[in-house]
Amino acid sequence: MDLQKFFRKPSSKEVAKERLRLVLIQDRSAVSPQLMDRVRGRILEAVSEFLEVDEQGLEVNLNHRETRVALVANIPIRKVKRGAGL
């Protein structure tokens, strides 16, 4: 193994690139609270057609992982609407 390479301090440009990569993942996925409210509203609307949702407990968030962003929703259900299962 090339020990020198292994212990080498990364060049400042490599550090800059890596920092930029991470900060841009955050920046690019940044969503305004207003937009999140609208997303929440539409999810509620869509799901309520079939299920009775506990609106107080509804949680909709964007989760940032290393390189990906996921929309995660936790939607507590009170009951299935009559006839919705047909």
């Binding site: 440009k13 800059a16 690139k17």
Partner: peptide, 14 residues
Amino acid sequence: RRGDMMDIDDMIEI
């Protein structure tokens, strides 16, 4: 050249 500034390709890639 000495690795202390991003180059053209780095900028385009990012």
